[in-house]
């Protein structure tokens, strides 16, 4: 289990864990639960440049597909290849299963995201 310096959340139900100038991105437990059994994860291309709000990947269950949006801008420097073979890893522990790592281009964007408490409140209201 990874301990991040900072962990933040987006309105689209992604989490972002900061480690130096790198940001690990995954989907939250709430998103994982609402999708159900995950069967496929479409990963971004290594080296692609994303703007905040761009589609980072797609997470699919049997009857739903959900775009994963990048909460921040940056370059994709790592992708979690294991998910291509074993997408169900996300279901097992979404908050510890990252999809991709971005090189942070604008740290200010991270400040604008929700912290754990704010996100908890937000996701309860969504229900």
């Amino acid at each position: 289990m990874k301990e991040f310096e900072i962990k933040k959340y987006s309105k689209e139900h992604e989490w972002i864990g900061v480690e130096g100038n790198k940001a690990y991105i995954g989907i939250t437990e709430y998103a994982g639960n609402s999708l159900g059994e995950i069967v496929y994860v479409e990963l971004p291309e290594l080296g692609s440049e994303l703007n905040a709000g761009d589609v980072l990947g797609v997470v699919e269950s049997v009857k739903a597909a959900s775009d994963v949006y990048s909460p921040i801008s940056g370059k994709v420097v790592e992708i979690n290849e294991e998910l291509s073979e074993n997408p169900e890893k996300i279901n097992e522990d979404p908050e510890n299963c990252w999809i991709a790592v971005l090189e942070i281009s604008d740290p200010a964007q991270i400040d604008e995201l929700m912290d754990e408490k704010e996100y908890k409140k937000y996701s309860t209201e969504e229900e």
């Binding site: 496929y40 699919e60 269950s61 049997v62 009857k63 739903a64 597909a65």
Partner: peptide, 12 residues
């Protein structure tokens, strides 16, 4: 592989 299909992805 139904997530490719119109009844799930609609305009996507």
């Amino acid at each position: 592989l139904q997530t490719r299909e119109q009844h799930i992805r609609r305009e996507k």
